[in-house]
Each structure stands twice: as structure tokens, then as C-alpha cells.
């Protein structure tokens, strides 16, 4: 699946949006079935985002979340504060005042290449799918360590339900399996979002930066951050101005728990041996005396 195909798909998505039918079903990704060997993700071009919040609407419709009001007056009010994703909102648009004016930034799960939440899960309810989506399953026990382990604070817990779930963007995994674009990508009217294999979107991001060096800063957020993410961001201003943390480092998050996890099997073998040894060495000489006596008798 090449870039041109993608742009075509994006184009038809826009057409669908223009006729008022936000989510026309059955739009296929491409002829080829998606290769399971590569991660898929979204390239977010913040210079193109106009803050219409259609992605929020599309996302809510697809995932059965409360449908937000995206009228212009509402948007104007809402965007005054910086919001976070929640247990009822998988994706959020924020507006930042920067040196280059107002910039809109969609925020959702970054779908890390090596996700902390997946490494933290003791029942593999959080899973990194071979095609890149980080998804949540019902066998979760609700320990919420995924929330603690996520550098982007994405998994959200339903605190006010007797039967709670962890809620987060799953990059429309079901739609992907049916060969359909993620809802947010499909409804985006300005092609600010581009879906593709990580390789494709990374190349496209680099191409855009090279073609417009004055427009973009030379940094794709997510290329190296926390070991790389499947969500990539382009920006015209330094990322800290539009709400991104620059102190997360490039080490994949599961690496931080290797120190302990790799030591466990060693301790499990060494401790019993050492303690049996000490126990034997501190044994009162009673038995030894008996031995002596026996030897003397012989």
C-alpha cells in the first residue's frame, strides 16, 4: 500500500464527511491485506489541524462513547482549557497559544512500540497487536498499574462503575481488522491525520519536513521517544509549547523493569543455596561430635 493509495482513501473520507455522513461504513484500506509484520499508526500534522473536533465525534460514535457537541460556539469555549483524555473520551483536541499563533493538537494513545502498559499487565489484558495497536481485554483485574506505567497518562479507569473497564484508544482495532480506517482519520476534513504503516508515515513526515523546512521544526515526536511510538507528530513549534513532554527519554519503558525482572531467576536459585549453606555451617557441633565418637569407636 503506497502513499498515493492512502491519499486517495483520505480524499474519499473527506468526501464522506462533506456529505454529512461522517462514518460511511465499508471503506476499505486498500486491495492488499495489511501486513501483520509492520506496525500501523497515524501521522498527526499539527499544522493542518483546525480544531473542528470531528475526530472526537467520530471516535465517540464508533466506540459507543457519549457523543460530544462540536458546534463552533461550544468549541470556542471548550478549547480555552487544556483537557485530557478521559474514560469517556479516547481522543481530545487541545489548543495552544504559541509563538506561531494558535495550534491545535489531537491527543490520544501513542501506541508505543514497546508499551509500558503492556509490560506492566499481569494478565496480558493490555496487548500490543502484531499490527501495532495497543488494546485492552476483559480479563483485566483492574490493578491500574498500566495507568502508573504509561508515560503519556493514557489508560483511564471507570471509577464510578461497579463493573469498571480501562478505557483508551485502540486505534480502531476492529475497524482495522475489517480493512477500515480509524474513525478519526476517516472524518478528518483537513488530512491532518494520515494512517499507514509506521515506515510509510515516518517517510511521509520526513518528506514534509524536507519539502517545507521553514514550516516544520526538524523533529518528529514519537520517532525515538520512549523507544518509538506508532503515533507520530509534526509541529511548527518546539513540542514543549504544544503540551508534549520532552523529558521522557528514548529508552523503551519496559527496559526500566528489566533490572528487577532479570534478577528474579538468579535470586531464586542463589538464595536457597546460600541459606542452606549457612544453615549447614551454623549447625551445632552435636552431630559432628557424634561422628567423632563413632570414628573413635571404630
Amino acid at each position: 500500500m503506497d502513499r498515493r493509495n492512502f491519499l486517495k482513501i483520505l480524499g474519499s473520507g473527506v468526501a464522506g464527511a462533506a456529505t454529512g455522513n461522517l462514518l460511511t461504513p465499508g471503506r476499505t484500506l486498500a486491495k492488499e491485506t495489511p501486513s501483520a509484520k509492520e506496525f500501523y499508526g497515524i501521522l498527526v500534522d499539527t499544522t493542518r489541524c483546525i480544531g473542528c473536533r470531528r475526530c472526537e465525534l467520530g471516535c465517540a460514535e464508533v466506540n459507543g462513547l457519549p457523543v460530544p457537541d462540536i458546534s463552533e460556539s461550544k468549541n470556542e469555549n471548550l478549547l480555552k482549557t487544556i483537557r485530557k483524555t478521559s474514560d469517556t473520551q479516547y481522543t481530545i483536541i487541545n489548543r495552544y497559544e504559541t509563538e506561531k499563533g494558535k495550534i491545535f493538537v489531537p491527543k490520544r494513545c501513542m501506541h508505543c512500540n514497546q508499551p509500558g502498559c503492556v509490560a506492566a499487565c499481569l494478565v496480558k489484558a493490555m496487548r500490543k497487536r502484531p499490527s501495532g495497536q495497543v488494546t485492552w481485554d476483559l480479563n483485566c483485574i483492574g490493578c491500574r498499574l498500566c495507568m502508573i506505567s504509561c508515560p503519556f497518562d493514557i489508560p483511564k479507569f471507570e471509577y464510578n462503575k461497579a463493573i469498571p473497564r480501562i478505557q483508551k484508544c485502540n486505534l480502531c482495532y476492529d475497524r482495522y481488522n475489517n480493512g477500515v480506517l480509524p474513525a478519526c482519520v476517516e472524518v478528518c476534513p483537513t488530512q491532518a491525520l494520515m494512517f499507514g504503516s509506521r515506515k510509510q508515515i515516518l517517510e511521509e513526515g520526513k518528506r514534509r519536513i524536507a519539502a517545507n523546512p521553514d514550516k516544520y521544526i526538524e523533529h518528529i515526536y514519537g520517532e525515538y521517544e520512549v523507544g518509538g511510538t506508532s503515533h507520530l507528530y509534526l509541529s511548527s513549534v518546539p513540542f514543549e509549547q504544544i503540551g508534549f513532554r520532552k523529558d521522557l527519554g528514548t529508552v523503551a519503558y519496559p527496559k526500566y523493569s528489566t533490572g528487577f525482572l532479570y534478577a528474579v531467576p538468579f535470586i531464586f536459585v542463589l538464595w536457597p543455596i546460600v541459606m542452606l549453606g549457612i544453615n549447614r555451617a551454623t549447625k551445632k557441633s552435636k552431630e559432628d561430635e557424634e561422628h567423632h565418637e563413632e570414628k573413635e569407636k571404630h
Binding site: A119, A120, C121, L122, V123, K124, N139, I141, S257, L261
Partner: peptide
């Protein structure tokens, strides 16, 4: 689930 569940998260500290 972590004891007799269908998925052992052997990757997890928890």
C-alpha cells in the same frame, strides 16, 4: 486470573 487465568503475564512485575 494471574494464577489459573488464560494469560500469564510473565512479563509483569505485578
Amino acid at each position: 486470573n494471574p494464577m489459573i487465568g488464560n494469560n500469564f503475564g510473565v512479563n509483569a512485575v505485578m
